[in-house]
Amino acid sequence: GCFECRPPCLQNCENRFEEIARLANETIFTVNEVEALYELFKKLSSSIIDDGLIQKEELHLALFKTPSGENLFLDRVFDLFDEKKNGVIKFDEFVHALSVFHPNAPMEEKIDFAFRLYDLRQTGFIEREEVKQMVIAILMESGITLSDDLLEAIMDSTFADADADKDDRINIEEWKDFVLRNPNLLKNMTLPYLKDLSLATVFPSFTSNTRIED
């Protein structure tokens, strides 16, 4: 297919409509929306190296406005987008992952994606040590210092609320109960932008006559 070409030849390839239709079929997006996402993908995947693939540095640049720097959460997001685990994000992987962030995507998918995001070591549980590691990471990212006592108090209250069976790890059922009681925890799993996706919003210089019909 055309996403195999380097750079992907989505614009000219004769299989273009087939590929777009396939992705629209596999996700919540319409063909017009997949087309709009491709414009966004092109910008992201060419911001450092123009090779039609999103490198970790390019995701870092988009989210942090600088190309380098370690960030635990960005690593996890990148890893979940990178379905084939080959260190780059292809267009189809990009569309699949963003589909979960659509306002109309099933809540179950968002809950599951967030669980996998926070299950750092991919053991099937969000362990207390992992949560502590993530809290330390966000405090460092924000330049905030907390005493270990306060940090432990936050951990205690979080696990008192989330860890129903008190085994110091949160399983998927406990996670579901927890986020359904605290829906604001899933706020960043929805991108309102995706609801109104068109070439005009993603790429303002595009005019409506470039759109293809659904």
């Binding site: 992201l44 990471a137 936050i154 989330a162």
Partner: peptide, 25 residues
């Protein structure tokens, strides 16, 4: 006690998890 603070609420504030910035390039 004001420590009803939730660890995941803090974590979800990371820029690394805020994908809306993807649309801001």
């Amino acid at each position: 006690q004001p420590t009803a603070m939730n660890a995941f609420e803090l974590i979800s504030m990371s820029k690394g998890l805020n994908l809306s910035n993807l649309f801001d390039i």
